[in-house]
Amino acid sequence: MDLGQYDFDKNLQKDSHYWYEEYKPSERGDSPDPVVIYSKFNANLSKFSFLPSWEEAVIKGICKDKNDYYSLLRAICIIWSQKKLQIYNSSDEVRLIKMMLILRETDQMIGRLSDQIIFWYSMGMNCSNSAHRSKKSADLIREMASCDERDGISMLCCDLVRMKESRARLVRDISMRSERLLPNCSVIVGPLVAARLLVEAGSLKRLSQMPASKIQVLGARNALFSHLSSGSPPPKHGLIFEHKRIHAASRKIRGKISRTLSGNLAIASRIDHFRGVKDPIFLERAQLRIEKAGKKS
């Protein structure tokens, strides 16, 4: 929609049809219903003329006065906004992104809280730092949760243990949604990493429009910009590093695998966006390509 090409005067003069003219005033003289008027155009305003004025609406007998006109318009716009929000809130994509944000927050909270509790524990035990560091923090928390003394800290430990269970459940829910929304990407990098890519890209549409080289370094923003501005080595991988094929590989071939992986992810995200179903033939080929990249060295 370029305004430069649009003929305004034509729109303004020739057979003008303003939004309020959708409403036919009845003989009974009841006031216009915003819900009915909204349903007439349903967010598609393209058939109406531009720049309506309240004076004309009053002359045409739709509204009593200026205030009447604006309160009608306001009611319609509020319905429009609410409809728009409804569509946004019910989108699977948005829900998945919000769930990922909750997961990120949960992880941060669990991490910070257990750090502080272990620090507190090591103070009370009067043991040197290295003694309890050898123990895994998760084990320590579990141990403290099961101790008989019911003080605040041990109750918090119980909460932490339960929190971890809830987190595992959340991850399962996310995986399910992600496999439904990103069927091809989920097979290639796993549902969780696929969902992270989605969060980083912002939407599936944007992810599907990204070049493979961008998907490769998605989530490595700082490294990429420090490369561009000060010439440090470029990042080989961003989020996709979390996939086991990359972080299990030896350092030398990581770059190669992540290039292949992101190339296939770019195709997979396009299939996910435009078709939305699994493509077994593509997936088989993609797996072969990725394996081949890992073998040659």
Binding site: Y18, W19, L45, F48, F50, L73, R74, I78
Partner: peptide
């Protein structure tokens, strides 16, 4: 908007004025 009765919310992209031009007066 619920508090101030003279605000008309328009859920549209400001970069695409044609999508809301039919509702806005001069």
């Amino acid at each position: 908007c619920n508090i101030k009765k003279n605000i008309i919310p328009i859920p549209a992209d400001a970069a695409l004025p044609l999508t809301y031009a039919p509702l806005v007066s001069r």
